[in-house]
Amino acid sequence: MKHGGGYWITVATLIFVFTVTFHFLNKQRQAVAPLKDEGNTLTSVSLIARAYAQYNDGEWPALASTGNPFRLSPEVPPLGYTISSRFDHKTTGSVDALLLGRINNAKAYTLRSMAETVKGYFYLGYAVSNESELLALTVAVKQSAAHGGELPAPAGAGTLGLDRFFRLHGNLAETMAREGAGEKFLASARRIPVLIEKPKDGWSWVYFLDLHAERLPYPGEFPLTENCIKALAEAER
């Protein structure tokens, strides 16, 4: 190939600019990698509740009747595990469970319970769409002995301004329509929180009823207002 010097200078310049830009973009990509991991942990935790809903006609798990009510119970079947190190018969440490099979030329991998992981999240159990509803929910939960069904609320302080708190459910839209709050539900469906990560470094991940996750600033808008997080944290004590 015969080309003038200009051609090769252009090629060299392109490669140089590319290399420098690529380096900086790669650093940015590496910087957001932990965020992706955090978001995916939240998604994994949500799967425990979603799997429960799937086997219970769309109804999400009830709040725990003992201990911290706003915590997703890892004892609710199906139990949640995350895949961990390859099983080694010389290991003396405890193993939560084993995944047996022919996996990447291994006979077994260890599974780690999500019990510790779920402690990092608040699970709401009931549908709330703003700060006042969430604060009223924490009071209602505190006053109620059992959290299996709908919870009574002060007039207009329940789910979407109704007089009760309704359980999180895959068919909540239909229930709300029957209760005359169908339009309100449609307007706020994307903002009904299910799981809220305990805030750290001014940020928190939130998983919503429409099955999407968002990383939001704390303190910020509902459900990450200071009052909401404070009320949920107090319920834990």
Binding site: F22, L25, K36, L42, T43, H212, A213
Partner: peptide
């Protein structure tokens, strides 16, 4: 074409764009 390839690589490396893998979706 080669410049476009480099541009493609830079866009792909940028953390602002979604890759095909499902675990990218969480960042919207």
């Amino acid at each position: 074409a080669f410049a476009l390839m480099l541009g493609h690589a830079l866009l792909f490396e940028s953390p602002r764009f979604d890759h095909r893998e499902w675990y990218e979706d969480v960042l919207n």
